[in-house]
Simulated scan of single mutants.
Amino acid sequence: MVSPVQTPQPPYFAVIFTSIRADGDNGYGETAKQMLELASGQPGFLGFESARQEIGISVSYWASQEAITAWKENISHRHAQGRAKDWYRAFRVRVCRVERDYGF
């Protein structure tokens, strides 16, 4: 059973990656798997959720802005970012501070 990521009490941060994929895999699937494994081991990583239909939405949760910056600057992640035009027709990244969190 899939369930939402359990995050700590706010505040914490979310990076929302919204995308429209290009045609073909072009190595995307394997790289995405590797990036999630790598991000999961980064200090400050709290979790990840993703859904894809016509538009893909992926949200990663982080303890701090510094943790997000460290992930953005990770050399393997930077290499993957350099392949964005191979994998996406369009994308947008939004960084948010989570102030409230509730649900069941």
Rank of each mutant, 00 (worst) to 15 (best):
P8F: 06
M1H: 09
W87D: 00
R78S: 06
R94S: 12
I55A: 11
P43I: 06
E54A: 15
K33R: 14
P10F: 11
A84C: 03
G29C: 07
F13I: 03
G24F: 12
D25M: 08
R92T: 15
V15D: 01
A67S: 14
T69Q: 15
E30Y: 08
R94P: 00
Q65T: 11
A84Y: 00
A14Q: 07
D101C: 03
R100F: 11
K33P: 00
S40C: 07
Y61Q: 01
T69V: 13
A67C: 12
A70I: 04
E54W: 04
R78Y: 02
T7E: 03
Q34L: 14
W62F: 08
R97D: 10
F45L: 05
A84P: 00
F17S: 01
Y61C: 01
Y12F: 15
T18D: 00
S64Q: 12
S40I: 04
R92K: 15
K85F: 09
A63S: 09
F91W: 13
P4Q: 04
A70M: 09
I68N: 01
I75E: 14
V93W: 09
T31P: 00
E30H: 12
L46V: 02
Q34W: 14
Q53E: 14
A67D: 05
A51L: 10
Q42L: 05
W62H: 03
P10I: 07
A84G: 05
R94L: 14
K72L: 11
D23T: 10
P4V: 04
R78I: 04
G47F: 02
